[in-house]
Design a protein around this nucleic acid. Structure first.
Length: 741
DNA sequence: AATCCGTCTATTTTT
DNA sequence: TAGACGGATT
C-alpha cells in the first residue's frame, strides 16, 4: 500500500495497529505527525473507520490545520465529516450544536484571557472586594484552576475565610458569565464535559459515532481534557495517543504528564510503541540531548538515534557579559549567512522574553533582519477588539463586556457616571446593560440614547448582509475608522481594521474546517438537537466571533521573511532549524531560579532544555555570560548545570572551558568588574582583597562560584559568592579556603 | 479626555 | 532598568 511506503518499522507498526488502545512514545523529530495522519488515512482506507467516525484532537490550531492538510493529501475524501481540531475548537463545535442542552444561548460568546480578566475585575468591583487581597490575576488563576479540575464553585473545598471568599467570587463570576452569555476557555471544556456526562442521549450518540479518538501531544493534556477523552471513549472506542513525556514543558498551565501513565494503566494499554529514530538532528546533537535528559528520574524511557552521521560538535561559548554574548551571536550569524545559510534557518532561543532585548539590539546594530516570536496577535490588538466588541453587541445585546468596551469608544460623551447609572439600573432590573440602557433612554437626546440608537441601527442595517459587509458596515458606522484617522499613530490601526474585513472574507471562503464554522452545519445534523428557531441570528457572525476568540491569529507580519528567528525555548517546541543558538545558559536563568523551589521544577527545566537542543538539525551553539543585567542590576552567574550534563566528547569549547586556559587562550579576556561594585571592593583598602569582583573561585565544599560583592577589610573582610545551585553565600575571607578557579 | 507621574513588578503560553 | 498600570491632574 503506497500509504505505508517509507515508514520505518516502528512507524509502520504504529500506523497499522489493530483497533486497540495505543500509546505512541514519539521522540523529538521521530515523525509523530506523520504517524498520526497516516494512521487516520490507513483506518479510513482499510475500512476500519469511516471519516465521520474519527475524532482527532490537538492543542494548537496550527497543528490541527497541519493534520488536515496532510490527511487531505493522502486521502481523496472530503475531510469535513472528520472532527479534527483543538480541544477548545471541538468543544465549541459540540456546544454550538447542543447549546440548549448545554444551557447556553445560541450565540454565546467566547472570552479570551484578557476578556476574562476584565469580567473578573468587574465582578470584584461589584462585590466591593479588596483588590489588594484578591488580585484579579490570582482570582482568574483560581477560577481556571478549579474549572480544569472539573469543579464548579459549589464543588470547591473551602478551608478558610480566604478560600470561602474566593469561592464566592467564583460563583459570582460564573453567574455574571451566564447572564451575559459568555464562556471562557476552560468553560468550553467543562461545559462540554458536563453536557456529555449528564445527557445520556448525547453521550451515547457521540460515543457510538467516534469509534477512533486520536490525541496529539498527550503529555500536554490537563486533568479535565483527560476526563473528557475518557468520557468520549466510553467502553468500546479506541484511543490512539501520541506524546513524549520528555517534552512535557507546560505543567505551569495545568498539563499533567501523569495522564500518559494513567492512560496506560486505566485503559490497560498493551500497544506501547516507541518512535526513537530521529530524522532531524545529527548524532552529536542527539547524544547531547540523550545525555541531558537521562538525568531526569521519572521517565517512560526513550533513546533517540539517527542514521545520519555524528555531524559537527556542539559549540560552547562563554562571554563576559550578556552584551558580549549577543554581539558574538550576531557576528556568528553574519558569518553563517556569508557561508550561505538563510537567516530563517537560524534560531536564537532563550529562557525568558526579557533576554530578547540585548539580542535584538545586537542584531539590529549588525544590520541583521530578525523576527521575534510572541507579543500581540492580530485578534488581540485593541482596535480589532473594539471592532469585535461592536460585532458581539450585534450578535448578543446582553454581552455587557462588549457594551462596556465600546459604549464610549470612540468617545461620545458617555462618562463614568452615565455608565454607572446604566449599571445601577441593570442591577435593579436584573437585566443586561443593553436592556437597561434602552429602557432608560426611551426619550432619546441623551448620549446613552444615541449609542443605543446607533447600535440598533447598525444591527438593522447589517441584517442579511454577507459577513464581510457586516464587518465593513460596523467599522464605518461605529466611527472606529474615523476615530483612528484622526489619531497620530492610527495608520497601522486602520490597516488592521481593514485586515479584519479581509479576515472575514477569508473566513467565509475557507470555512475553516478546524472548528467554529462547522458548528452552523452541525446544528442542522445534530441528532439530539431540537429544530433551529425560525428566525435564526446570523450563524456566520457567531462563527466568526468564535473563530476570532479561538484562533488569535498570526503573531506578527513578516512570517515568510528571511529573518533570524528569536523565541523562547517554549515557543520553539514543534519547530526545527538548521542552526540553533541557545543563549543564557546560566544557573538561575536556565534552569530558572524559580524552578528549583517547585516540585519537579528542575526536571521540567531539563525537559525544556531537551526541547531546545532537539530543535537543531545540523549545528547547535550553547552560550552563557558571566554577568548579566537583570532588573537593572548586574548579576554574576555560573554556567548552567546543563552544560555539565552533556558529555564533554560532543562539546567543542570556543572559549577556554570553565575559565581555565583551555584551547585558544587569546580569545578569552577576564571580565572587568563593573565600576560600581569594583569601587565598593576598593573601599576595603588596597590589597585587602586578593580577589576581584566577578572572579571565579573554588571552595572546598561548595565548588566553583563567582564573587559577587565584598565588604569589610582585614580580618573582617567578607565576600559574597554565587555558587549557583548551592546558592548565594557570605564567606569570611579569613576562614574560607578560597582558591582562584 | 488626554497626559503626567509615581508605584510596582519582573518564567514559561495556548485556547 | 524599563514597562505597565492606576490615580490624579490639567
Amino acid at each position: 500500500m503506497p500509504l505505508l511506503d517509507h515508514l520505518n518499522p516502528e512507524q509502520l507498526a504504529a500506523v497499522t495497529l489493530p483497533n486497540q488502545h495505543a500509546l505512541i512514545l514519539a521522540g523529538a523529530g521521530s515523525g509523530k505527525t506523520r504517524v498520526l495522519t497516516t494512521r487516520i488515512a490507513w483506518l479510513v482506507q482499510t475500512g476500519n473507520a469511516s471519516p465521520a467516525g474519527i475524532l482527532a484532537v490537538t492543542f494548537t490550531n496550527k497543528a490541527a490545520r497541519e493534520m488536515l492538510t496532510r490527511i487531505s493529501a493522502m486521502l481523496p475524501i472530503n475531510t469535513r465529516g472528520m472532527w479534527v481540531g483543538t480541544f477548545h475548537g471541538l468543544c465549541n463545535r459540540m456546544l454550538r450544536a447542543h447549546h440548549r442542552d448545554a444551557g447556553l444561548p445560541q450565540l454565546f460568546q467566547i472570552l479570551d484571557s484578557a476578556d476574562q480578566l476584565s469580567v473578573v475585575k468587574r465582578v470584584l468591583k461589584s462585590m466591593n472586594v479588596d483588590e489588594e487581597k484578591f488580585q484579579p490575576k490570582q482570582v482568574q488563576w483560581f477560577i481556571n484552576g478549579a474549572k480544569e479540575e472539573g469543579k464548579r464553585a459549589g464543588d470547591v473545598e473551602v478551608y478558610d475565610d480566604f478560600s470561602r471568599r474566593m469561592v464566592e467570587i467564583y460563583a459570582a463570576y460564573d453567574e455574571q458569565c451566564r447572564r451575559e452569555g459568555l464562556a471562557d476557555f476552560p468553560e468550553l471544556l467543562l461545559r462540554c464535559f458536563e453536557l456529555l456526562s449528564r445527557n445520556e442521549v448525547l453521550r451515547t450518540h457521540y460515543q457510538s459515532r467516534f469509534r477512533h479518538i486520536l490525541v496529539d501531544e498527550f503529555q500536554d493534556t490537563n486533568r479535565l481534557q483527560y476526563r473528557w477523552l475518557k468520557l468520549l471513549a466510553g467502553q468500546g472506542n479506541v484511543i490512539f495517543g501520541v506524546g513524549d513525556d520528555d517534552q512535557s514543558i507546560y505543567r505551569f498551565r495545568g498539563a499533567n504528564v501523569g495522564n500518559m501513565a494513567d492512560f496506560e494503566r486505566e485503559f490497560k494499554v498493551e500497544n506501547l510503541i516507541r518512535l526513537e529514530q530521529n530524522y532531524r538532528s545529527h548524532g552529536n546533537i542527539l547524544d547531547a540531548a540523550n545525555a541531558l535528559i537521562s538525568h531526569n528520574r521519572r521517565r517512560l524511557g526513550k533513546n533517540l538515534w539517527t542514521a545520519a552521521g555524528e555531524g559537527e560538535p556542539v559549540r560552547v561559548y562563554e562571554a563576559q557579559s550578556d552584551g558580549y554574548e549577543a554581539r558574538w551571536i550576531a557576528e556568528e550569524v553574519q558569518s553563517l549567512v556569508r557561508e550561505g545559510y538563510a537567516r530563517s534557518d537560524i534560531a536564537v532561543l532563550y529562557r525568558s522574553n526579557a533576554q530578547s532585548r540585548v539580542l535584538e539590539h545586537a542584531l539590529f546594530t549588525a544590520g541583521i533582519a530578525y523576527r521575534v516570536y510572541g507579543g500581540l496577535r492580530f485578534f488581540e490588538r485593541q482596535e480589532v477588539k473594539h471592532a469585535l466588541a461592536y460585532l458581539r453587541l450585534l450578535a448578543n445585546p446582553d454581552d455587557d463586556s462588549a457594551f462596556l468596551r465600546v459604549v464610549n469608544f470612540p468617545t461620545r460623551g458617555i462618562g463614568a457616571r452615565s455608565v454607572e447609572q446604566v449599571q445601577d439600573a441593570a442591577r435593579g432590573a436584573g437585566g443586561s446593560l443593553w436592556a437597561a440602557a434602552s429602557s432608560l433612554t426611551g426619550k432619546a437626546g441623551t448620549a446613552v440614547g444615541a449609542f443605543v440608537k446607533l447600535v440598533a441601527a447598525m444591527r438593522e442595517n447589517a441584517r442579511g448582509l454577507p459577513l464581510p459587509e457586516v464587518v465593513d458596515h460596523v467599522l464605518h458606522a461605529s466611527g472606529l475608522l474615523d476615530h483612528y484617522k484622526t489619531e497620530r499613530e492610527g495608520t497601522d490601526r486602520i490597516e488592521n481594521l481593514e485586515e479584519l474585513v479581509n479576515a472575514a472574507t477569508a473566513f467565509v471562503r475557507d470555512e475553516l474546517p478546524t472548528g467554529a464554522a462547522l458548528a452552523a452545519v452541525d446544528q442542522a445534523e445534530a441528532a439530539a438537537a431540537p429544530a433551529a428557531p425560525a428566525e435564526a441570528p446570523d450563524p456566520w457572525l457567531a462563527a466568526f466571533l468564535a473563530h476570532a476568540a479561538l484562533e488569535s491569529g498570526e503573531n506578527q507580519a513578516g512570517e515568510g521573511a528571511d529573518a533570524v528567528q528569536l523565541m523562547t525555548a517554549h515557543s520553539a517546541k514543534g519547530l526545527e532549524f538548521h542552526i540553533v543558538f541557545i543563549s543564557g545558559l546560566e544557573e538561575g536563568l536556565f534552569p530558572h531560579e524559580q524552578s528549583v523551589t517547585e516540585e519537579d521544577g528542575l526536571e521540567e527545566e531539563r525537559r525544556l532544555m531537551y526541547v531546545a537542543v532537539t530543535r537543531a538539525r545540523t549545528r547547535l551553539y550553547l552560550s552563557f555570560a558571566q554577568t548579566r543585567l537583570l532588573h537593572g542590576q548586574t548579576r554574576y552567574n555560573v554556567a548552567s548545570r546543563f552544560l555539565d550534563e552533556i558529555p564533554a566528547a560532543v562539546l567543542k569549547w570556543l572559549t577556554p572551558r570553565g575559565g581555565k586556559l583551555f584551547g585558544d587562550a587569546a580569545a578569552w579576556q577576564p571580565a572587568p568588574a563593573p565600576l560600581r561594585l569594583a569601587a565598593k571592593a576598593e573601599r576595603s583598602g588596597p590589597g585587602a582583597l586578593p580577589f576581584r569582583i566577578g572572579q571565579n573561585v573554588n571552595h572546598p565544599k561548595f565548588g566553583v562560584g563567582v564573587i559577587v560583592s565584598a565588604e569589610g577589610s582585614g580580618a573582617d573582610a567578607r565576600v559574597q559568592i554565587n555558587f549557583g545551585r548551592q546558592g548565594m553565600k557570605w564567606l569570611q575571607l579569613e576562614y574560607a579556603k578560597l582558591t582562584p578557579a
